[in-house]
């Protein structure tokens, strides 16, 4: 464990806490893409198949459980919570995300570390995570100015993967056998997708006003 990865995991956790706060403090999920949340739940379920078979550390297992439970509870809130589900922008959240799932799965069948169920699903989860934010970015763009908590959620989510890139650089130079090309390349693509969002976010923060 290095500081970059720990910082990445913490910013990832913060992004989920910010989202849960927004949803439960305002009893509203306006501006949040349910599709992105469902993709994240799928990412965690596909990636943590080894939850019960590989014990790496208490921290690792605890965080996996937290990510799975929190992502499923966000999907539950947006779909079934009597008050919250009414504020879901159903008519704006129209990204055809099944294409993202299909594309990631096909890519995982082609490019993976080993052709086993666990490894193919791991690669699938890595590719899917890279593009899972697209419905959310699409929704932010369509809903005009973003309310700042939704923007902060996306900001922390982007920061988490950026920290991971530093983690991979650090591990590459400190552990000669470290080859994590699938996660590295996919993580770079994922962070690049946030680039334009970061640009508008910093402009808004720098000059005040709202991002539109």
């Amino acid at each position: 464990m290095n500081i970059f990865r720990f910082a990445g995991d913490m910013t990832h956790l913060i992004s989920i806490i910010v989202l849960l706060l927004k949803i439960y403090a305002t009893k509203s999920c306006s501006g949040i893409s349910l599709k992105t949340q469902e993709l994240y739940a799928l990412v965690f379920l596909a990636r943590y198949l080894d939850l019960f078979t590989d014990f790496i550390s208490v921290y690792n297992t605890m965080m996996k459980v937290v990510f799975i439970v929190s992502s499923l509870s966000i999907v539950w809130s947006m779909r079934l919570h009597p008050v919250i589900k009414r504020s879901y922008d159903k008519e704006l959240d129209t990204f055809r995300y099944y294409l993202l799932v299909l594309g990631s799965f096909v890519l995982a069948l082609l490019i993976h570390e080993k052709f086993t169920v666990q490894e193919v699903f791991w690669a699938f989860s890595i590719y899917l995570e890279a593009v899972a934010i697209l419905p959310q970015l699409f929704l932010l763009q369509r809903s005009g100015n973003v309310d700042n908590l939704a923007a902060q959620y996306v900001f922390f989510l982007g920061a988490y993967r950026a920290f991971y890139i530093f983690n991979w650089i650090y591990r590459y130079f400190t552990k000669p056998y470290f080859t994590r090309w699938i996660a590295c390349v996919s993580g770079l693509v994922q962070t690049a997708l946030y680039a334009d969002f970061f640009y508008y976010y910093f402009i808004r923060v720098a000059i005040g006003g709202t991002v539109s």
Binding site: D50, W122, N167
Partner: peptide, 10 residues
């Protein structure tokens, strides 16, 4: 690292 490339990252 061991031959089996287990995933220690989240």
């Amino acid at each position: 690292s061991s031959s089996v490339q287990y995933h220690d990252e989240l």
